[in-house]
Deep mutational scan, measured.
Amino acid sequence: EPSQADLDALLSAVRDNRLSIEQAVTLLTPSSGGGSGGGSMDAKEILTRFKDGGLDRAAAQALLAGRTPA
């Protein structure tokens, strides 16, 4: 399960175009075949909204942490 520091680094990389959204989703869902963790939004949607400015960093982190299976 990614830590808050991992999520923060991942969000920074996506925002700075050092990591594509697809690459980030793969890192967030290493063994689930890329499927959502059952959250209301999947990781790709969360990351896309964050990059487009629709979500701030704290909200994106909380959503990603919340949808990651324990």
Rank of each mutant, 00 (worst) to 15 (best):
E1F: 10
E1V: 11
E1P: 09
P2W: 15
P2F: 15
P2C: 15
P2G: 12
S3I: 10
S3Y: 13
S3E: 10
S3D: 09
Q4N: 14
Q4M: 15
Q4T: 15
A5S: 09
A5C: 15
D6L: 15
D6Y: 15
D6H: 13
D6S: 13
L7Q: 02
L7I: 11
L7V: 08
L7A: 02
L7R: 02
L7T: 04
D8E: 11
D8I: 06
D8V: 06
D8H: 08
A9C: 15
A9H: 07
A9E: 11
L10P: 00
L10H: 01
L10Y: 03
L10R: 01
L11R: 00
L11Y: 02
L11K: 00
L11W: 03
L11T: 01
S12G: 05
S12D: 15
A13I: 02
A13V: 02
A13F: 05
A13Q: 05
A13H: 04
V14G: 00
R15C: 09
R15N: 05
D16V: 04
D16P: 00
D16E: 07
D16W: 04
D16M: 09
N17K: 08
N17A: 05
N17M: 06
R18F: 07
L19H: 01
L19M: 10
L19G: 00
L19Q: 02
S20W: 02
S20M: 03
I21R: 00
I21P: 03
I21H: 01
E22H: 05
Q23D: 11
Q23R: 08
Q23G: 05
Q23W: 05
A24D: 00
A24T: 02
A24Y: 01
V25Y: 05
V25S: 04
V25H: 03
V25W: 04
V25G: 02
V25P: 00
T26F: 11
T26W: 10
T26C: 15
T26P: 03
L27V: 04
L28C: 04
T29P: 09
T29N: 11
T29W: 08
P30D: 05
P30N: 14
P30I: 15
P30F: 14
P30W: 15
S31K: 11
S31I: 14
S31A: 11
S31Y: 12
S31C: 15
S32D: 13
S32L: 13
S32H: 11
S32N: 14
S32W: 09
S32A: 10
G33A: 08
G34S: 11
G34H: 08
G35L: 12
G35D: 11
G35F: 05
S36K: 09
G37P: 13
G37V: 12
G37K: 08
G38K: 11
G38A: 14
G38F: 14
G38R: 09
G38I: 13
G38M: 15
G38Q: 11
G38V: 15
G39F: 12
G39D: 11
S40N: 14
S40E: 07
M41C: 07
M41Q: 07
M41V: 09
M41P: 10
D42R: 13
D42H: 08
D42V: 06
D42I: 07
A43I: 15
K44R: 12
K44S: 08
K44C: 06
E45P: 02
E45M: 07
E45V: 07
I46F: 02
I46P: 00
L47Q: 00
T48V: 06
T48M: 11
T48P: 00
R49F: 04
R49Q: 06
R49V: 04
R49K: 10
R49M: 09
R49H: 04
F50N: 00
F50V: 02
K51P: 01
K51Q: 04
D52K: 10
D52G: 10
D52Y: 13
G53L: 03
G54D: 11
G54L: 15
L55R: 01
L55N: 01
L55A: 01
L55Y: 04
L55W: 02
L55M: 06
R57A: 11
R57K: 14
R57H: 09
R57N: 05
A58N: 07
A58T: 07
A58V: 10
A58H: 06
A58Q: 10
A59P: 01
A59C: 13
A60H: 00
A60G: 01
A60Y: 01
Q61E: 07
Q61A: 14
Q61H: 09
A62S: 11
A62V: 07
L63H: 03
L63E: 03
L63S: 03
L63K: 03
L64W: 02
L64R: 01
L64P: 00
L64S: 00
A65M: 15
A65D: 04
A65C: 08
A65T: 08
A65S: 11
A65K: 11
A65N: 08
G66F: 10
R67S: 06
R67C: 09
T68H: 10
T68M: 13
T68E: 11
T68C: 13
P69G: 09
P69C: 10
P69F: 04
P69H: 13
P69D: 08
A70L: 02
